[in-house]
Structures are given as structure tokens and as C-alpha cells.
């Protein structure tokens, strides 16, 4: 799931500038599950904005509406009706959702209320860990289910580097376990240690362009 957290209120206020009235658009998808941008958080943000403007002697007309997902056109019917009444939309979706809204209402400033952090899992309620950089070239099958791209500070496909400390932590931070040390441990437990000697071609990290996925059975449908 996509994990995000709310931007500092001052930053959102600065983005808004003189824009008034404003619609805070909540998202019922990932950001509501990670407690960053669901209906409750959107309403909280609206209340915070109202209070902030009030404290400075101003007044911000702000309403909230939450749709089930901001990354799919199917859920925008109500916003299509409402959007015209506002000067700006503050979206509490992930970066993809914000761009989707901005593309749908190109004349309206659409502002992000969140910083989108990563794809990760729930450690506990309100506690999330990054686990996937969506690099598009998964090596987990050879690395004992530990992602070196996410968990190695250098994102090495072939590790470890020379920076592993004696206690198995990373030279970057003594609190971070060295990903390749962990991979070594895991593979040894599984009796598949020979996998660590396999050389994987280095990944081309530069010049990343926007990626598109069209599943095989749908190629025909979209003429690709």
C-alpha cells in the first residue's frame, strides 16, 4: 500500500495564498488506510485551516468531500458537479491522485496536502515500513525476500559493499541493519547461499521515464 503523511500546515497555507474558497478532497483509498488522507483526516485538515485563518484574522471558506479513490475516473461524478464552486482543490491523496485530479480539472489549482512516502506494509496501526521502491525489476526471489534496492543504502544489486560493520549494521547508520548481511543470513537459513554469488547486471538508474503497464490480454483493446 502507498504510505503518505501530511505536510506541515504552514506549507499548505503558503500554497493556498489568496485562493478562497477551497475544497479539501479526501481519498478513500491508500491514504485513508494509512491514516493520512481519509475523510477524517480531510475534515481535520479543513478544521485546522479554518482555525489557522481565523487566528490570523482572516476567513477561509473550506468544505470537504471524500471520494473512494482519486486515481480512477469512475469516482469523480460528484466532484465534477462541485469543482466549479471552488478556486482550488487541496487533495489528500498520494502524488498519483493529486495529478489525476489536476489533469481532470486543468483550470483549477490542485494542491497536495500530503507528502507521498513509499510503498510499504503496516507494522502496526499508524506505523509503516518501506519495502518496495517499485523499481520494476524484482530480485526478491534471489535475495531471500529482502529487497536490496529498498533496504541497502546504496541500492546495490550485488552486495554487500565494504561498508558492513562487524555487527552486521550499515556504515551509513549503526541502527540500520546491512541489507546484504540480512540477505546472507536468510539465504544460509534456507540452504540457498549459492544464490548470493550470482551476479546481477547493474541497474540503469538514470534517465527514468514515466512507465506504463498494459496487461497482455488488454493490448488489443488499447491498440498497443
Amino acid at each position: 500500500m502507498i504510505i503518505a503523511h501530511r505536510k506541515p500546515l504552514e506549507e499548505i497555507v503558503e500554497m493556498l495564498g489568496q485562493l478562497n474558497p477551497v475544497l479539501v478532497l479526501g481519498c478513500g483509498g491508500c491514504t485513508s488506510i494509512c491514516l493520512a488522507g481519509g475523510q477524517r483526516e480531510a475534515e481535520q485538515l479543513a478544521a485546522d485551516l479554518r482555525e489557522d485563518y481565523g487566528n490570523r484574522g482572516g476567513q477561509l471558506e473550506v468544505n470537504t468531500y471524500t471520494i473512494e479513490r482519486q486515481c480512477n475516473a469512475d469516482f469523480f461524478a460528484d466532484i465534477d458537479r462541485l469543482a466549479g464552486d471552488y478556486q482550488a482543490i487541496v487533495s489528500t491523496a498520494c502524488g498519483a491522485g493529486v495529478q489525476f485530479v489536476a489533469e481532470r480539472y486543468p483550470r483549477l489549482p490542485v494542491l497536495p496536502a500530503l507528502n507521498t512516502d513509499f510503498v510499504g506494509f503496516d507494522k502496526d496501526v499508524g506505523w509503516y515500513e518501506e519495502n518496495c521502491r517499485t523499481c520494476g525489476d524484482c530480485v526478491l526471489g534471489e535475495t531471500g525476500g529482502i529487497c536490496p534496492v529498498t533496504r541497502c543504502a546504496k541500492s546495490l544489486f550485488n552486495g554487500p559493499c565494504g561498508g558492513t560493520r562487524a555487527d552486521g549494521t550499515c556504515e551509513v547508520d549503526p541502527d540500520i541493519p546491512c541489507a546484504w548481511f540480512e540477505i546472507h543470513k536468510r539465504l544460509r537459513e534456507q540452504g540457498r547461499l549459492e544464490l548470493i554469488t550470482r551476479v546481477r547486471p547493474a541497474r540503469e538508474w538514470q534517465n527514468q521515464i514515466r512507465r506504463t503497464v498494459i496487461q497482455e490480454p488488454y493490448r488489443e483493446r488499447y491498440g498497443k
Binding site: 478513500g28 481519509g38 477524517r40 471520494i67 473512494e68 469512475d74 469516482f75 496501526v125 499508524g126
Partner: peptide, 21 residues
């Protein structure tokens, strides 16, 4: 799906929605 989404919107309009914590 659009019908389910509308039912959800009706619930949301009355503050009825899942609390994920």
C-alpha cells in the same frame, strides 16, 4: 461499482465511514 461508490458517498455524507485505527 458505481452503485457501491454512491452508497459509500451517502454514508460518508453522514459521517459514517470506516476508522482504520
Amino acid at each position: 461499482p458505481r452503485m457501491i461508490a454512491l452508497a459509500r458517498a451517502v454514508c460518508r455524507s453522514q459521517g459514517v465511514y470506516p476508522d482504520f485505527d
